[in-house]
Design a protein around this nucleic acid. Structure first.
Lengths: 106, 106
DNA sequence: TTTACATGCAACCAGTCAGTTGCAAATATA
DNA sequence: TATATTTGCAACTGACTGGTTGCATGTAAA
């Protein structure tokens, strides 16, 4: 079973859960009230998020609080970094074009 | 059929294809030589990438060149931006802790 | 014109996924 | 202690996915 960050954030419900608990840690029950799916379905999403370490848990009596492990998101950020270079070089090319146009004008 | 950028980059083969054509535009056949799957499978991935506008095509005779539409990746970047703020505030909290420790030391 | 090549599309298949219901375990409360 | 609450886990289901093979279409070359 494949279980990486990219697959985890592919599901829109999971992305919504991530945004929710990014603000403050929440229990599965509390999270489920924000969606039209059963608590068990939310729990399954939380398990997936936990398995790929995007989320950590903290037990408090019979309640379990789920909170975001923000650093794990850096993996996606790291992958995107490769393209950031590309965008910058594209912008640099555009700069070159503008510079050439300017030069020819003078 | 759901078809967004997050779902598109969830598949490791598609991420590899994206990295390949980020360097230079390529034909499906050329791309397929880099993988252990059939050309048709690659074509299906390319169709998904095209449908969510991560990739654009340019016909040249009987060949079709696929090239990356880098700007579409900004959507993922935009989503991550929300968490970047979070990381920064976490670092700020850490700064506060360090500052307090320093103050108490004096 | 005939042949070879590049590609997309359709049908099929096994595995995965997101959701459901039902149930057992652990903790809080009466 | 008996009851209610919170949770995780297992079994099931319909839909989707990534892969395959086969075929039709369009373009280049012989």
């Amino acid at each position: 079973m494949r279980r990486d960050v990219f697959q985890a954030i592919a599901d829109p419900t999971r992305r919504a859960i991530i945004l929710l608990i990014a603000i403050k840690a929440m229990t599965p029950n509390a999270i489920a009230t924000h969606f039209d799916i059963t608590r068990q379905a939310v729990s399954k999403h939380l398990r997936i998020l936990t398995e790929c370490e995007l989320v950590k848990t903290e037990q408090s009596g019979r309640e379990i609080f789920y909170e975001l492990n923000g650093t794990k998101m850096l993996e996606v950020d790291k992958w995107l970094a490769a393209f950031r270079k590309l965008w910058e070089s594209r912008f640099n090319e555009l700069d070159q074009v503008l510079l050439t146009m300017k030069k020819n004008k003078q």
